[in-house]
Design a protein around this nucleic acid. Sequence first.
DNA 1: CTTAGGG
DNA 2: CCCTAAG
Length: 772
Amino acid sequence: MELQKRLDYGFNGYKLPATPRATRSARKRVPFRKRVEDSQISAFDLLATVAGKLLLDKESTPVSSNTLTADDRSAVEKNIVKEERRDGDQSLKLETCNQDGTDRGFVVSQLVSQANELNCNSRESPSLKNDARFGFTSVVTTSGCSERSNVLKLMNNKIKNETESLPFKVETGPPFMCGTSGGRIKLDSENKGLIREELDRTDKVSVREVADMCPLEDPVVLDGKPPVLVSSGSSGKTHSCGFNNYHSSLPVKRDDVNVVSRDDDEKSSGCTYTGPLKKSFKPAPLIGDRRVKKTLTSKYSKLAPKLKEETLSNSDENSKSTYCDRSAYKRLRSERNYPFKKRKFLHYSSVSNSDGGISSEGISNSPEQSNNGNSSGVYPKMCGVIGESPSSADQRKSFHSRDSHVKFRIKSFRVPELFIEIPESATVGSLKGQNLASNLDGYFDSICCKLFILRTVMEAVTAVLGGGLRIGVLFQGKKVRDDNKTLLQTGISLDNQMDALGFSLEPNTSQTFPSLCTGGSPMPLPCDTPLPLARYPATPGLVNRVTHDPSPEHHMPNLGNFAESDHDSAPSPTDMSFDKNKTDSKALVAVPAMSVGALDVVPAHRKSKRSEVVQRRIRRPFSVAEVEALVQAVEKLGTGRWRDVKLRAFDNAKHRTYVDLKDKWKTLVHTARISPQQRRGEPVPQELLDRVLTAHAYWSQQQAKQQMKQQQQQQQQQQPESCLLLYNSTMRAGSRCDAFCFIAPALDPTFFSSALSGFSLWGFFPRSEFFV
DNA sequence: CTTAGGG
DNA sequence: CCCTAAG
């Protein structure tokens, strides 16, 4: 048998949300980045799944599949062994999918094998048949460094019910020894720290080093000594390995990896989160994950301008008083921005933190993590393994030329459940060919994803077999023949159980293989008997969570302003003697104000509880002096011009935003209306409160008047000036109808209906159109 | 970015 | 104070 005539895939474990709507709305709030990462992970996992499935099928061990099904788990255990490469091997590297338009190449899996066997369409493929010799190669490439591809040869595919186990176990030969040793990572939140430590300790292989070792030009085949497996997973403890990156957000991990790679001695570096800025400055990732870089860049680029702006404004302030106003305001803005930015970041981090808690089981092995691990950790290390051209003599250059093989073993990994939404209007065909990059939503559609991966696999298979395969879509056991059908038409709705959806690789009728397809079922390849269609049960309860980049360490740059602002926050020196009040206010405000040194602590504190949401701005009660200034300004400017109020009376109080002033006014009004007994905080002189009420009443009235005026104006403009053009049935549109023009107050058209029955309303027109 | 309001 | 919808 060369290949089974058909490979059927049931992608269990991938389920569309039962309530897509809810998902959508909820998703709306999810930061784009998160979504992207989500999908990436998914893609990888999907790939892995497919790969596993392929292996499964290839080995034609229905039992396994059944077992899996029974398990109702999405965990798949794989053993990946790198096999000796033959020159004849076909290695196929596929690059693909981008989610966000960036060119993040993704994981592509490919069937490679003792290609010879595959290629020869001989029915008897010993390797396939008998032993696990059939190699499955998974190629991962990132567009950034597409040149570095990694190959995993998968062998001995097993499916186990080891859901809880690490995403991966990797066995590698000596070449990778350090970090590579297979490790079992449990992503329990408790273990994270441990894992990291382990990581630091064990992961001594620098990515860079590895990368350097396996330049594109000379692919290296690592040699496969007996696996120096670190852990066989026997110990519950985690061992770090190439995949250690798993348990943290992509960027972070990446960073970690980099750090580690650069300085092995610095143990802490591995687990220390370095600020985002650092990231952006760091040399291009080896992995070539441009997407990530881009993300980071864009993410922080926003901040950068702000900083610049601030700086500039400050300097402006110093040099040119002319710009004082604006610059001051800009400062304000920048100041304000920080909390926002921060919030956002923290949000991410909080997500990651919660990550562990949300999905009951090993959420931690969030797909993303695995993804990371793959791209940054494992694969890079394996890059040498994948020879672009096996035949190239360069291969021997590999650091381990002795044997040309390396064994990898993926013991197990877990495929998370996906929650993805796909438009029902999408056609099957479009999904098949869809470039994931075009997915505006930033999500992989699970179907799309599956199809994509299938396509990838198909392409690989095609490459091996010479073409003639296509992806068949099965829905509820029926084959979807028309790719032009939309999902809706096909009956694939979001509400459907995703396990009702299956895929198959089938001979492409238009190609090499004659079309044998007749029924609704995929046709077997000519020379083989169909393998049992394995379908994985959907795996409930596994939620795919994405961890995020920890909050960047942006410290509020201008916290120091507190002190400054305090001094300045005094009301504009009118004729009032606020000196005393000023002092008081200073004292009051000064409380929160900290020395610079103290401020530095803030971030640390914040960092310590990253899980906590954003740090709220420190509370700074308005002093009487400030209230005075506010009242005065409002009396002058009125309510509704808070920016002006700010500029007028609080321009120097950087910590008072116009929103703050507005809020304060609101509370002042409220305070003034309640009984003195109910008031809290520093008592505001009744005199001020009275003024507040007076001013508030006055400006409210003014506003009302304004509105009235505006309305009147509108009415005057519209009604008197507009004409009603009436016509009767004898008239045709476009004909002259002066006689039927009326100057009409904008009354309800029905007004005319009685007097001018028989006419129809044509419309309102500006008077000028009729009376020029 | 500003306003206006609810929380 | 925060958060957000609107404009």
